[in-house]
Design a protein around this nucleic acid. Sequence first.
DNA 1: GACAACCTGACC
DNA 2: GGTCAGGTTGTC
Length: 269
Amino acid sequence: MPELPEVETIVRDMNGEISGSRIENIEYITPSVWRGKIPGRKSLIAVRIIEFQRLGKHILMHLSNNHTIVIHLKMTGRLTLQGPGLKPARHTHLIIEFNGGELHFSDIRRFGFIDYVKTPEVMDARYIACLGSDALKISANEFIALIKSRNRPIKAALLDQTVIAGLGNIYTDEALFQANIKPSRKASKISQTRLMALHRCIRIVLRRAISARGSSVSDFVDGSGKKGTYQNHHKVYGRTGEMCFNCGTNIKRIIIAGRSSHYCPRCQR
DNA sequence: GACAACCTGACC
DNA sequence: GGTCAGGTTGTC
């Protein structure tokens, strides 16, 4: 489900709604969603949430006890706020209760994970330490240098979180369409000018998607359970066989790096 | 690189 | 029955 814009939407929602709240209770429904040691109930009761932060596609929930809860939603994870005492949805694995509300973590496929780490050690966690620069923060020069050195399809390089963090299958396809670059094109063989354009297109697509509160293709919902609207603006993702909005050619679907890749064979080279 | 693995559900 | 799905990791 979530790539950078969806995770950013959730983090902003949570910061607006529950930063500063005190934890009143925890319900550990599915212990296996915890990657490491499960925090004892006593260590979390009465602890305050300082703020939420996004790192790549990870959600960091910084707490007043010098610890941080890290959440990765993978494909079908959801983080939502609910009224108190309502029956949790199917596949809900963790509930954190506050005065007046509950934070629910659910995940149909259970690929997602939750981790509890000391705040000063967050950056040392293996899954965080390996992340490349954030897709919205990376400079054009750094972007070009990184991409130029990869001898693989541009799409594979963009999906690699150790190169750039935050892009996933939807937004790589959309950004490559905006930049007129074929996803299978070797990264090292793309000109500096076109990489500059791609860097700009990535920023534009991500910003627009954040403004639209993310893409809801099947599972994504924001912090209050509502769908985003950027799926209505997809130009190629999920449009196999439909007409390109620019030239009318049928959108093609190929597999790159094991992922469905959608592109216009006429507009993208 | 390609592929299987981790899971459940939707759709043909 | 088979295929596919916003992600990542580990294996040949």
